[in-house]
Simulated scan of single mutants.
Amino acid sequence: MTTTDPILFVGFPAVGDFVRCHSAIQIIAERFPGRPIDVVTSPVAAPLARLMPHVRKGWALAKRHQRPGFAERGRLVRELRKENYRTAYLMTSSTKAALMAFMAGIEERIGYPQELQFGLLNRFPVGWLAHLWAFGPRKTRLFEEVCSIASLGDKPAASTEWPAPRLVVDPVELDEWRQRQKIDAGQPALALYTADIENFRSWPIERFISVARDHRDRGWAIWIVGGPRERAGAAKIRAAIPEAIDFTSTPSIADAMCQIAASTMFLGVDGGISHAAAALNVPCALIYGLNRPYVHGPVNNHVRFIEPPLSTPSWVKDTRGISETRVREALAGLSAGIHS
Protein backbone atom coordinates (compact mmCIF):
# COMPACT_ATOMS: atom_id res chain seq x y z
CA MET A 1 0.00 0.00 0.00
CA THR A 2 1.09 3.56 -0.65
CA THR A 3 0.56 6.71 1.35
CA THR A 4 -2.07 7.89 -1.15
CA ASP A 5 -4.25 4.78 -1.43
CA PRO A 6 -7.89 5.66 -0.64
CA ILE A 7 -9.67 4.30 2.44
CA LEU A 8 -13.32 3.26 2.62
CA PHE A 9 -15.14 3.90 5.88
CA VAL A 10 -18.46 2.07 6.38
CA GLY A 11 -20.49 3.97 8.98
CA PHE A 12 -23.81 3.50 10.72
CA PRO A 13 -27.07 4.48 9.00
CA ALA A 14 -28.69 6.48 11.85
CA VAL A 15 -27.81 10.18 11.99
CA GLY A 16 -26.59 10.21 15.60
CA ASP A 17 -24.51 7.05 15.22
CA PHE A 18 -23.02 8.32 11.96
CA VAL A 19 -22.04 11.62 13.60
CA ARG A 20 -20.28 9.67 16.34
CA CYS A 21 -18.28 7.89 13.64
CA HIS A 22 -16.41 11.12 12.91
CA SER A 23 -14.23 10.49 15.95
CA ALA A 24 -12.95 7.34 14.22
CA ILE A 25 -12.47 9.21 10.94
CA GLN A 26 -10.27 11.76 12.69
CA ILE A 27 -8.12 8.98 14.17
CA ILE A 28 -7.68 7.37 10.74
CA ALA A 29 -6.86 10.72 9.12
CA GLU A 30 -4.17 11.37 11.72
CA ARG A 31 -2.63 7.93 11.19
CA PHE A 32 -2.71 8.20 7.37
CA PRO A 33 -2.61 11.92 6.53
CA GLY A 34 -2.13 11.45 2.77
CA ARG A 35 -4.85 8.88 2.15
CA PRO A 36 -8.31 10.08 1.04
CA ILE A 37 -11.23 8.82 3.15
CA ASP A 38 -14.66 8.12 1.64
CA VAL A 39 -17.67 6.96 3.66
CA VAL A 40 -20.69 4.72 3.11
CA THR A 41 -23.87 5.33 5.08
CA SER A 42 -27.63 5.69 4.60
CA PRO A 43 -29.22 8.28 2.27
CA VAL A 44 -30.44 10.17 5.34
CA ALA A 45 -26.98 10.51 6.89
CA ALA A 46 -24.89 10.74 3.69
CA PRO A 47 -25.30 14.55 3.28
CA LEU A 48 -23.49 14.99 6.60
CA ALA A 49 -20.33 13.51 5.11
CA ARG A 50 -19.48 16.74 3.31
CA LEU A 51 -19.58 18.57 6.67
CA MET A 52 -16.98 16.23 8.17
CA PRO A 53 -13.35 17.35 8.04
CA HIS A 54 -11.06 14.74 6.39
CA VAL A 55 -13.88 13.13 4.36
CA ARG A 56 -13.50 13.31 0.57
CA LYS A 57 -16.98 12.10 -0.37
CA GLY A 58 -19.92 10.01 0.81
CA TRP A 59 -21.66 7.02 -0.75
CA ALA A 60 -25.35 6.52 0.02
CA LEU A 61 -26.57 2.95 0.32
CA ALA A 62 -30.32 3.04 -0.24
CA LYS A 63 -32.65 0.72 1.61
CA ARG A 64 -35.82 -0.97 0.53
CA HIS A 65 -38.47 -1.35 3.26
CA GLN A 66 -35.76 -1.08 5.93
CA ARG A 67 -33.73 -3.90 4.33
CA PRO A 68 -30.73 -3.19 2.09
CA GLY A 69 -31.50 -4.33 -1.45
CA PHE A 70 -29.03 -6.76 -3.04
CA ALA A 71 -29.37 -5.00 -6.42
CA GLU A 72 -28.50 -1.70 -4.78
CA ARG A 73 -25.53 -3.27 -3.01
CA GLY A 74 -24.37 -4.78 -6.28
CA ARG A 75 -24.43 -1.39 -7.98
CA LEU A 76 -22.49 0.15 -5.11
CA VAL A 77 -19.90 -2.66 -5.20
CA ARG A 78 -19.27 -1.96 -8.87
CA GLU A 79 -18.76 1.74 -8.13
CA LEU A 80 -16.46 0.97 -5.20
CA ARG A 81 -14.29 -1.26 -7.39
CA LYS A 82 -13.58 1.70 -9.67
CA GLU A 83 -12.10 3.65 -6.74
CA ASN A 84 -9.37 1.06 -5.97
CA TYR A 85 -9.79 1.21 -2.20
CA ARG A 86 -7.04 -0.70 -0.41
CA THR A 87 -8.41 -0.53 3.16
CA ALA A 88 -11.93 -0.63 4.60
CA TYR A 89 -12.88 0.21 8.18
CA LEU A 90 -16.26 -1.29 9.08
CA MET A 91 -17.95 0.31 12.08
CA THR A 92 -21.04 -1.87 11.78
CA SER A 93 -20.76 -5.57 12.57
CA SER A 94 -23.11 -6.45 9.69
CA THR A 95 -22.11 -9.44 7.58
CA LYS A 96 -23.62 -7.73 4.53
CA ALA A 97 -21.34 -4.73 5.02
CA ALA A 98 -18.29 -6.99 5.29
CA LEU A 99 -19.40 -8.93 2.20
CA MET A 100 -19.72 -5.68 0.28
CA ALA A 101 -16.14 -4.69 1.11
CA PHE A 102 -14.94 -8.20 0.19
CA MET A 103 -16.76 -8.16 -3.15
CA ALA A 104 -15.34 -4.71 -3.90
CA GLY A 105 -11.87 -6.28 -3.83
CA ILE A 106 -10.62 -4.28 -0.85
CA GLU A 107 -7.51 -6.04 0.45
CA GLU A 108 -7.57 -4.96 4.10
CA ARG A 109 -10.95 -5.18 5.85
CA ILE A 110 -10.92 -4.06 9.49
CA GLY A 111 -13.65 -4.51 12.08
CA TYR A 112 -15.06 -6.63 14.89
CA PRO A 113 -16.29 -10.09 13.77
CA GLN A 114 -19.44 -9.85 15.87
CA GLU A 115 -21.36 -11.92 13.31
CA LEU A 116 -18.40 -14.30 12.82
CA GLN A 117 -17.35 -12.72 9.52
CA PHE A 118 -13.99 -14.50 9.51
CA GLY A 119 -12.54 -14.28 6.03
CA LEU A 120 -14.79 -11.40 5.10
CA LEU A 121 -12.91 -9.41 7.75
CA ASN A 122 -9.18 -10.07 7.87
CA ARG A 123 -7.87 -7.64 10.48
CA PHE A 124 -9.24 -7.14 13.98
CA PRO A 125 -8.56 -4.64 16.77
CA VAL A 126 -6.65 -5.77 19.83
CA GLY A 127 -9.09 -7.38 22.25
CA TRP A 128 -11.48 -8.51 19.51
CA LEU A 129 -12.04 -11.91 21.16
CA ALA A 130 -13.36 -10.32 24.37
CA HIS A 131 -15.57 -8.08 22.25
CA LEU A 132 -16.93 -11.14 20.43
CA TRP A 133 -18.44 -12.44 23.66
CA ALA A 134 -20.07 -9.11 24.53
CA PHE A 135 -23.59 -10.28 23.71
CA GLY A 136 -26.63 -8.29 24.75
CA PRO A 137 -26.08 -4.65 25.78
CA ARG A 138 -22.74 -3.20 24.67
CA LYS A 139 -19.97 -3.38 27.25
CA THR A 140 -18.43 -0.24 25.79
CA ARG A 141 -19.91 2.97 24.47
CA LEU A 142 -20.39 3.22 20.73
CA PHE A 143 -17.94 6.15 20.82
CA GLU A 144 -15.24 3.93 22.32
CA GLU A 145 -16.06 1.07 19.97
CA VAL A 146 -15.64 3.04 16.76
CA CYS A 147 -12.45 4.66 18.07
CA SER A 148 -11.10 1.23 18.96
CA ILE A 149 -11.69 -0.03 15.41
CA ALA A 150 -9.99 3.04 13.94
CA SER A 151 -6.97 2.71 16.25
CA LEU A 152 -6.85 -1.11 16.02
CA GLY A 153 -7.31 -1.28 19.77
CA ASP A 154 -4.54 1.12 20.73
CA LYS A 155 -5.60 3.37 23.60
CA PRO A 156 -4.84 7.09 23.53
CA ALA A 157 -1.88 8.33 25.57
CA ALA A 158 -2.57 9.20 29.20
CA SER A 159 -2.39 12.94 28.46
CA THR A 160 -4.71 12.82 25.43
CA GLU A 161 -8.25 11.78 24.58
CA TRP A 162 -9.95 10.43 21.51
CA PRO A 163 -11.32 13.32 19.44
CA ALA A 164 -14.95 14.41 19.69
CA PRO A 165 -17.01 14.48 16.46
CA ARG A 166 -17.00 17.71 14.43
CA LEU A 167 -19.28 19.03 11.71
CA VAL A 168 -18.44 22.25 9.88
CA VAL A 169 -20.93 24.30 7.83
CA ASP A 170 -19.30 26.59 5.26
CA PRO A 171 -19.71 30.22 6.47
CA VAL A 172 -20.72 31.31 2.96
CA GLU A 173 -23.42 28.64 2.85
CA LEU A 174 -24.60 29.71 6.29
CA ASP A 175 -24.84 33.36 5.25
CA GLU A 176 -26.80 32.38 2.14
CA TRP A 177 -29.20 30.37 4.29
CA ARG A 178 -29.74 33.35 6.59
CA GLN A 179 -30.49 35.57 3.60
CA ARG A 180 -32.99 33.08 2.15
CA GLN A 181 -34.77 32.72 5.47
CA LYS A 182 -34.53 36.46 6.27
CA ILE A 183 -32.80 35.67 9.55
CA ASP A 184 -31.46 38.54 11.64
CA ALA A 185 -27.93 37.43 12.53
CA GLY A 186 -27.88 39.90 15.42
CA GLN A 187 -30.83 38.33 17.25
CA PRO A 188 -29.99 35.37 19.52
CA ALA A 189 -31.89 32.19 18.68
CA LEU A 190 -32.82 29.21 20.85
CA ALA A 191 -33.22 25.99 18.83
CA LEU A 192 -35.65 23.46 20.32
CA TYR A 193 -35.59 19.74 19.56
CA THR A 194 -38.51 17.95 21.22
CA ALA A 195 -38.30 14.55 19.45
CA ASP A 196 -41.61 12.65 19.37
CA ILE A 197 -43.51 14.16 22.29
CA GLU A 198 -45.17 10.79 22.99
CA ASN A 199 -41.78 9.09 23.37
CA PHE A 200 -40.28 8.55 26.84
CA ARG A 201 -37.12 10.38 25.71
CA SER A 202 -38.97 13.66 25.26
CA TRP A 203 -39.68 16.29 27.91
CA PRO A 204 -43.21 17.52 28.70
CA ILE A 205 -44.12 19.97 25.93
CA GLU A 206 -45.59 22.51 28.35
CA ARG A 207 -42.14 22.83 29.94
CA PHE A 208 -40.52 23.42 26.54
CA ILE A 209 -43.13 26.15 25.99
CA SER A 210 -42.48 27.76 29.38
CA VAL A 211 -38.69 27.90 28.84
CA ALA A 212 -39.12 29.12 25.26
CA ARG A 213 -41.54 31.84 26.37
CA ASP A 214 -38.97 33.12 28.88
CA HIS A 215 -36.39 33.48 26.11
CA ARG A 216 -38.89 35.04 23.74
CA ASP A 217 -39.69 37.67 26.36
CA ARG A 218 -35.98 38.48 26.57
CA GLY A 219 -35.77 39.07 22.83
CA TRP A 220 -34.66 35.65 21.62
CA ALA A 221 -35.93 34.02 18.43
CA ILE A 222 -37.41 30.55 18.97
CA TRP A 223 -36.68 27.93 16.31
CA ILE A 224 -38.16 24.43 16.33
CA VAL A 225 -35.92 21.95 14.51
CA GLY A 226 -36.32 18.34 13.44
CA GLY A 227 -38.54 16.43 11.04
CA PRO A 228 -41.91 14.67 10.87
CA ARG A 229 -41.66 13.22 14.38
CA GLU A 230 -41.25 16.71 15.84
CA ARG A 231 -44.21 18.31 14.04
CA ALA A 232 -46.77 17.54 16.75
CA GLY A 233 -44.57 19.27 19.33
CA ALA A 234 -43.92 22.16 16.94
CA ALA A 235 -47.66 22.72 16.48
CA LYS A 236 -48.19 22.95 20.23
CA ILE A 237 -45.27 25.34 20.70
CA ARG A 238 -46.47 27.63 17.90
CA ALA A 239 -49.99 27.61 19.29
CA ALA A 240 -48.57 29.05 22.51
CA ILE A 241 -45.80 31.14 20.92
CA PRO A 242 -46.93 32.25 17.43
CA GLU A 243 -43.60 34.00 16.82
CA ALA A 244 -41.72 30.69 16.97
CA ILE A 245 -40.40 29.48 13.62
CA ASP A 246 -41.26 25.89 12.71
CA PHE A 247 -38.43 24.32 10.71
CA THR A 248 -39.72 20.74 11.00
CA SER A 249 -40.84 20.68 7.36
CA THR A 250 -37.29 21.35 6.13
CA PRO A 251 -36.78 19.36 2.91
CA SER A 252 -33.08 18.58 3.39
CA ILE A 253 -30.73 17.73 6.21
CA ALA A 254 -28.29 20.33 4.82
CA ASP A 255 -30.81 23.05 5.68
CA ALA A 256 -31.35 21.47 9.10
CA MET A 257 -27.63 21.73 9.79
CA CYS A 258 -27.72 25.42 8.82
CA GLN A 259 -30.61 25.99 11.21
CA ILE A 260 -28.67 24.47 14.09
CA ALA A 261 -25.33 26.05 13.18
CA ALA A 262 -26.98 29.50 13.01
CA SER A 263 -28.63 29.15 16.42
CA THR A 264 -27.12 30.61 19.58
CA MET A 265 -28.06 27.72 21.88
CA PHE A 266 -29.68 24.33 21.49
CA LEU A 267 -32.16 22.76 23.91
CA GLY A 268 -32.98 19.16 23.07
CA VAL A 269 -33.48 15.61 24.17
CA ASP A 270 -31.89 12.25 23.37
CA GLY A 271 -31.69 11.88 19.57
CA GLY A 272 -29.55 12.07 16.45
CA ILE A 273 -30.16 15.79 15.92
CA SER A 274 -28.68 16.47 19.36
CA HIS A 275 -25.47 14.69 18.32
CA ALA A 276 -25.34 16.88 15.21
CA ALA A 277 -25.85 20.03 17.29
CA ALA A 278 -23.01 19.06 19.61
CA ALA A 279 -20.72 18.29 16.67
CA LEU A 280 -21.55 21.69 15.15
CA ASN A 281 -20.06 23.28 18.28
CA VAL A 282 -23.34 24.90 19.33
CA PRO A 283 -23.73 25.25 23.13
CA CYS A 284 -26.17 22.47 24.04
CA ALA A 285 -28.39 21.75 27.02
CA LEU A 286 -29.58 18.17 26.59
CA ILE A 287 -32.31 16.50 28.64
CA TYR A 288 -31.65 12.78 29.13
CA GLY A 289 -33.14 9.96 31.11
CA LEU A 290 -31.34 8.60 34.15
CA ASN A 291 -27.90 7.11 33.36
CA ARG A 292 -28.31 7.58 29.60
CA PRO A 293 -25.87 10.45 28.86
CA TYR A 294 -22.68 8.46 29.39
CA VAL A 295 -23.64 5.65 27.03
CA HIS A 296 -25.86 7.44 24.52
CA GLY A 297 -24.98 11.14 24.73
CA PRO A 298 -22.53 13.28 22.74
CA VAL A 299 -18.98 13.43 24.08
CA ASN A 300 -18.34 17.08 23.16
CA ASN A 301 -17.15 19.14 26.13
CA HIS A 302 -19.52 22.07 25.57
CA VAL A 303 -22.63 19.92 26.19
CA ARG A 304 -24.51 20.21 29.49
CA PHE A 305 -26.63 17.20 30.42
CA ILE A 306 -29.68 17.47 32.65
CA GLU A 307 -30.75 14.14 34.17
CA PRO A 308 -33.50 13.15 36.59
CA PRO A 309 -32.45 13.26 40.26
CA LEU A 310 -30.38 10.28 41.43
CA SER A 311 -33.21 9.39 43.81
CA THR A 312 -35.39 8.55 40.79
CA PRO A 313 -36.17 4.78 40.73
CA SER A 314 -34.30 2.96 37.97
CA TRP A 315 -37.53 1.75 36.40
CA VAL A 316 -38.63 5.35 35.65
CA LYS A 317 -37.35 5.95 32.12
CA ASP A 318 -39.01 9.28 31.27
CA THR A 319 -37.73 12.81 31.94
CA ARG A 320 -40.66 14.21 33.91
CA GLY A 321 -38.53 14.45 37.02
CA ILE A 322 -36.43 17.20 35.40
CA SER A 323 -37.72 20.59 36.45
CA GLU A 324 -37.91 23.77 34.37
CA THR A 325 -35.69 25.43 36.96
CA ARG A 326 -32.79 23.07 36.29
CA VAL A 327 -33.12 23.53 32.53
CA ARG A 328 -33.21 27.32 32.91
CA GLU A 329 -30.08 27.16 35.07
CA ALA A 330 -28.26 25.08 32.45
CA LEU A 331 -29.23 27.49 29.67
CA ALA A 332 -28.23 30.49 31.79
CA GLY A 333 -24.82 28.93 32.38
CA LEU A 334 -24.36 28.34 28.66
CA SER A 335 -25.48 31.87 27.87
CA ALA A 336 -23.02 33.31 30.38
CA GLY A 337 -20.24 31.33 28.72
CA ILE A 338 -21.20 32.70 25.30
CA HIS A 339 -21.01 36.30 26.49
CA SER A 340 -17.94 35.95 28.71
Rank of each mutant, 00 (worst) to 15 (best):
E230F: 10
D246H: 11
H302G: 03
H339C: 05
E324Q: 14
V40D: 08
R231V: 11
A24M: 08
L174K: 11
A212M: 11
D38E: 15
K139W: 13
E176N: 14
G69K: 11
W220N: 04
A234N: 07
W59A: 00
N300A: 13
K57A: 12
D217Q: 14
G321C: 00
T264F: 09
A62C: 05
I253R: 02
D38R: 12
H22T: 15
T312I: 09
E145P: 00
T140M: 11
F305I: 07
L331Q: 11
R64I: 08
N281E: 15
F118T: 10
G105P: 01
R207I: 04
K57R: 14
T92V: 14
F118M: 03
P313S: 05
R218M: 02
R56P: 00
P251A: 12
T160Y: 01
R231D: 02
G34H: 12
A234M: 08
L192K: 07
I7M: 03
F305A: 09
L80G: 01
L61R: 07
T41K: 07
W128H: 10
G105D: 02
P188Q: 09
L90Q: 06
K96V: 08
T194I: 04
R78N: 13
I222D: 06
E329W: 03
R304T: 14
F102Q: 07
A285E: 03
I253V: 13
A278S: 14
F266E: 01
S23K: 03
H339P: 00
R31S: 14
V40M: 12
N199V: 04
R109Q: 05
Q259L: 09
Y89E: 01
F18C: 06
T3Q: 13
M103K: 10
G271C: 01
E108L: 13
P283T: 05
I273G: 02
R304A: 11
A157L: 08
E307P: 00
A195Y: 03
S151T: 05
G321M: 12
Q117H: 03
F266C: 04
P47F: 04
V146N: 02
R73Y: 10
F124N: 05
E108W: 01
S263L: 03
V55P: 01
L286H: 02
T4I: 13
A232P: 00
V316T: 11
M265L: 15
Y85P: 00
H54P: 00
M1I: 13
A239F: 01
A158R: 13
I273M: 15
E329P: 00
D38A: 13
M1A: 13
A256W: 06
